[in-house]
Design a protein around this nucleic acid. Structure first.
Lengths: 362, 362
DNA sequence: TGGCCGACTGGTACCGGTATCACATGCCAC
DNA sequence: GTGGCATGTGATACCGGTACCAGTCGGCCA
């Protein structure tokens, strides 16, 4: 085990190992790279020399000549967001098993940074890209098509971009939202608030405007809004735009939205929140107004997190399979690399509505 | 903008750009690499040719000849853990500004996987490594010293390894724990439970055994236990080993530990938890036993998360600067790369005890 | 005994950049 | 008129692997 290292200076190369072992460079390469013919005796010598010098293959050089970097690029809005962290976890473990490492880049939902990120990954010659894109329309995806044209497989995760023929792994946000709101409807609620989702430029008044907003925003947000509208339609309830949040997408924006709705003359009796921070903001607003759930307002949210179960009373939530989203996305990428040439597919993972105690019959 | 691409096949190289522009390879390289002399006219031609062919530099090749990969490796136990996700976020944004990308590897606290991970990063010729090592003693860190001997700067984050001369960025876990427990003491509590920390092989009975356990475990856990003991000493309270959890480090282990303490004949009147999941498990146990905080049991925990503030009543927590930990670690690495040769330093970031309403005078 | 094949070895041309160096201008100064 | 320098330009030798290919040797078969 005593690895005697060349006293400082550049790491030993295959040529040095060959010289040390007294064989040709090619023979050393064959031994170390584990390909082609090498006699047992020479293999032994080479291995001993490599050990002695502390040789480690230079993956950069290897990638250069093979054209394969054994690296995946992952682009998300924010690595620190627990949802994306979960997805990345799934991607990393799945691809690691197959020998691929993950280069993570975050964009803060900026399309421009996203473009740079893709360029960077192309330059680094990654073997595949998984991206939760901020792009809404196919016209904004030149960078993604660019990567594909350079034969780098791309898999979208969490978000779909319409008319862009690319593999995608998502959940059915619309159906999940619909189911969550239906639960509220079934409990007898008719005035149901919607906190977060599309960031509306200005308050929207007509149903048509609402649908336009859903189409013009981040896919997940749009879908959740559509699901909310679907459920209302199912229940024969007319949408009241005053119950749809218009503030910016931050915890505090959610708080302000919820507070405004809740302190209006005709407040909602239930609120559906589309993200963790929206739920937190909403509960903050309720505490400020001394409102209780589900006594005063029933609550259903998106993204089951461990604390939702220990709230008092525990929160009813839509659970998303974060890790699984990453696992499946990585598997799709690996399949493409293995030569799968089927047309692009959208894989939809199922969500689960976990009923706890934040909804009350009204 | 019309990027006319070579119809499929390998991406254009600098030679092809040179040919297209009718100049020598070196001239094209100087233009594209932005170094050395090039006349305005030729520069123009080269740029046009590059644009036309859709040329992008191959970072792999560049790294090969410069020996610099512009990539940092980050090794943590679990990417999906919000704490590490926060740290990684800080690292990624800080290094990105200086043109470094982050390769993230997780180990699940396995020292063996950690060793492999370091090897892999060495092979990929990363320019620096930031690691939250699972190693406890310096003897277990051959892999870290190996990287250092190969002139790859290493910065430890969140955890220190004694006797290993390496830069480290941490918080003062001991002092933070001490402060948290002191708060409980000041409120008049004398029987204070400790949930999580060192995973004890078997129940520990003497003070000496406790101290040995603290030294033999993950640094953070050991320090938090020491801080707990410090505070008890300060208050002149003798440690009751029955109030120290012995279960495995999972949310459910915490639940079982807390449940056992709380349902014993002589239960604690306050509990200090050392991690988010420990707090969740503890609260679960309390709900099971219909115990309320702070009425029946006061609570103080580690890791302030957004939901802690909306619990009812809100939780008193020690806030760790997760992102900042990553930022400072990345800055340290950048400084080393810029040639800083000062002796290794330990940077301690401060924590904040956020007092809310989960502690009651007893 | 010659031919052929399989086992093995080493030389060397890639991969796509960077960096050094030799060489060609042209202009100015002495 | 010629030496010197600033400005440009293109060959070419790296970086450290992979992979092809030519060539050697020995054995076996016809």
């Amino acid at each position: 085990m005593a690895v005697e290292r060349a006293q400082r200076g550049s790491p030993p190369t295959i040529s040095e190992v060959a010289k040390e072992a007294g064989v040709g460079r090619a023979t050393a390469a064959r031994t170390l790279g584990d390909y082609g013919y090498v006699s047992a005796e020479l293999r032994e010598r080479v291995l001993a020399a490599a050990e002695k010098l502390g040789y480690r293959a230079n993956s950069l050089a290897r990638s250069m000549s093979t054209g394969v970097s054994h690296t995946f690029g992952v682009i998300v809005a924010d690595i620190a967001n627990p949802f994306f962290a979960g997805v990345i976890g799934g991607i990393a473990t799945t691809s690691r098993v197959r020998g691929f490492d993950t280069l993570v880049l975050s964009t803060g939902e900026s399309l421009e940074l996203e473009r740079d990120a893709v360029g960077l990954l192309i330059d680094k010659r990654v073997d595949g890209i998984i991206i939760a894109s901020a792009a809404v329309t196919a016209a904004q995806t030149e960078h993604i098509r660019d990567a594909q044209q350079r034969d780098i497989p791309v898999v979208l995760v969490d978000r779909i971009i319409e008319h862009l023929p690319t593999d995608a792994v998502v959940i059915d946000n619309r159906e999940a939202a619909r189911g969550a709101v239906r639960l509220l409807l079934e409990a007898g609620h008719e005035r149901i608030g919607f906190v977060w989702g599309p960031e509306l430029a200005q308050p929207v008044t007509t149903r048509r405007e609402l649908e336009a907003a859903a189409a013009a925003t981040l896919w997940t947000d749009g879908e959740r809004l559509r699901g909310y509208l679907d459920a209302l339609d199912d229940g024969g309830i007319v949408v009241d735009p005053a119950l749809i949040s218009v503030e910016e997408k931050t915890e505090d924006g959610a708080r302000r939205s919820a507070r405004a709705m809740l302190s209006s003359p005709n407040p909602p009796t239930a609120i559906f929140t589309t993200e963790t921070d929206a739920m937190i903001g909403t509960i903050r607003a309720m505490r400020e107004l001394s409102l209780e759930f589900p006594g005063d307002v029933s609550l259903v949210g998106f993204d089951d997190t461990s604390w939702a179960a220990i709230m008092d009373p525990p929160l009813t939530m839509v659970e998303q399979p974060m890790t699984q989203l990453g696992v499946v996305a990585a598997e799709r990428l690996l399949a493409r690399i293995d030569g799968d040439t089927e047309p692009a597919r959208v894989l939809t993972l199922s969500t689960r509505l976990i009923e706890r105690a934040s909804v009350r019959k009204s």
